[in-house]
Design a protein around this nucleic acid. Structure first.
Lengths: 322, 322
DNA sequence: CTGAAAGCGCTTACAG
DNA sequence: CTGAAAGCGCTTACAG
């Protein structure tokens, strides 16, 4: 590969002038500019970005920290980020952690090491206490509500409450739900909404109706298998993701449970395939969350953007006799 | 941020020695090594990777070129790549092109500019003639069969033929199919398999049964809308992706077409949600293709890896009277 | 409008 | 075992 020096020599100018041409600076005599451009063309020259990154202390790249790059929930957020990034000059680096605290830190250290200018955290393994100090080294954005950081998020308490109220309105009194990681903030929000709404409606709280560690289709199947073992079963399930809900639909069929007659299901995320399943679900506009998160990364500032959600009613919730 | 110079000064050694400690070189007196390590700890030092990249001429990063980062087909390939990459020290940069030739070239130029060490091309907008010259600047891998490049691919002629033969065995004589981009290699392979298999079976070829530009759920819906307009309709559709197939299932229901009684459907990709849909589909093991492609990037060489496929039989194909 | 020179933060022969 | 120095390929005051 040729360098700026080669260009300078062949064009008969200094490297400063070449640099000026490369960066569209004014104050280069037209004749020299043309000559430089011509040599660049001839040598098929391209800048070495690593040198530029070193000098500028920036890479125009953002890391997106998430546990699983192959999960539709995160894919939707990433989709939004990419869409927003495409119109900027920022490249997107996927940073899958598998919820390993160590891997997560490694990505944060990439920022410290100037490999990426910032990090958007879709979901995290470490506590904020551990993560926040890295904010000093770059632009850190969260996809959940964090006091100290710019963030784009769903109000999970609110979303979960809405879904619960809808189920209650349809006559359900015995409602269970699933969560991914029991200690995540959104799971805590769901638990408190569960208590809050059920108590307000004088409905019994049954914590054996809570199914943790639910991430993918197989978890959905597992939930139904566990469910059929219970003598006292919920009539409705509020599921933390449409993929889990898909697993529930599959296994329910196998077990001879009719959805929604025997079991109502509300999903979360409104994935593209959910329409085909006729799944009633909460659309939290993950794409939008991704977009907003990217904007926050790009423009800095310390805003908190709460992205509204919608309940999308389809065919997996039945109306019960009052 | 502190630099190697600061460490050297405070530790009372040269920067050479600091570099040696950082890179686990032998030949550093234990006492000095300890001192350096201690100062590094104190200053909370991290290397500036851009300097290292500049010196080494490498970034340990691979770009993955694809049209849409939010499409399940590509997400599955990317999933495989990420899985393979996680156990190496290589980071994965997503390069969505939206099938813009210009954007695609931009990513190839990132390689030329030393921002990434290589590029895995999942699907491309430019001709190979345009792309191949970039192989000079880094490691280029394809996810389709290309003479000049290492590649991991599906034999689409073979896969498509298998599905056709299965449909014919089930008594179908009037078969249509969909493709994404009409001029892609896989579409051409499908067309020639269509001719080949149908002719061998003395079945009529009807090119109005070919539905191009089919990418997502909406395209699947569109296909059914077009289909119901035809007086002469195929009894079975071989669809180029499960997402399109999902759209077909949705719209068929709306139009009062029973699948599979009125219309049999075979998908492609075996996406996670396909099981929930009961969709018969061809699993081409996209994850595996991604993994192999990454291995080819990592280890160089010029292998061609043909990844085998499976026909996954579920409930969307009917048996017709002979 | 132009160029010499310092500097970005590292690695790596080379000499000792 | 150790360090001075050159070099990776750029940008950017500074002086003219």
């Amino acid at each position: 590969m040729s360098t700026i020096k080669d260009i300078a020599k062949l064009a008969g100018v200094s490297i400063t002038t070449v640099s000026r041409v490369l960066n569209n600076h004014p104050y280069v005599k037209d004749e020299k500019r043309r000559k430089v451009l011509q040599v660049i063309e001839e040598l098929n020259y391209q800048q070495n970005m690593n040198a530029i990154h070193l000098v500028k202390g920036k890479t125009f790249m953002v890391g997106v920290v998430l546990p699983y790059a192959d999960h539709p929930y995160f894919q939707s957020i990433v989709g939004g980020i990419i869409k927003a990034a495409t119109s900027s000059e920022i490249a997107v680096l996927l940073c899958p952690t598998n919820y390993s605290k160590i891997d997560e830190i490694k990505y944060l250290e990439m920022m410290k090491r100037k490999q990426i200018d910032g990090v958007i955290i879709c979901s995290r393994a470490n506590t904020w206490e551990v993560i926040l100090p890295f904010a000093e080294y770059g632009s850190l954005v969260a996809c959940e509500l964090v006091e100290e950081l710019p963030c784009a998020y769903t109000d999970h308490f609110d979303a979960f409450s809405s879904a619960l109220n809808y189920l209650i309105k349809e006559g359900h009194k015995s409602i269970g739900y699933s969560v991914a990681r029991e200690n995540s903030n959104s799971s805590k929000a769901r638990l408190s909404a569960y208590h809050d709404v059920l108590e307000k409606n004088n409905l019994p709280i049954n914590e054996s109706f809570i199914f943790p560690d639910s991430i993918d289709i197989d978890d959905g199947k597992r939930i139904v298998k566990e469910l059929v073992q219970l003598k006292d079963r919920p009539t409705a399930l509020l599921v933390n993701g449409d993929e889990v809900a898909a697993g529930i639909l599959i296994q329910a069929k196998k077990e001879g449970l009719n959805v929604p007659a025997d079991l109502s299901v509300i999903g979360f995320d409104n994935q593209p395939f959910s329409e085909a399943l006729g799944l009633t679900t909460i659309d939290q506009h993950l794409n939008e969350i991704g977009k907003k998160a990217f904007d926050l990364f790009l423009h800095g500032g310390h805003q908190k953007v709460c992205v509204p959600f919608d309940l999308v009613i389809r065919n997996t919730v039945s109306k019960l006799q009052q």
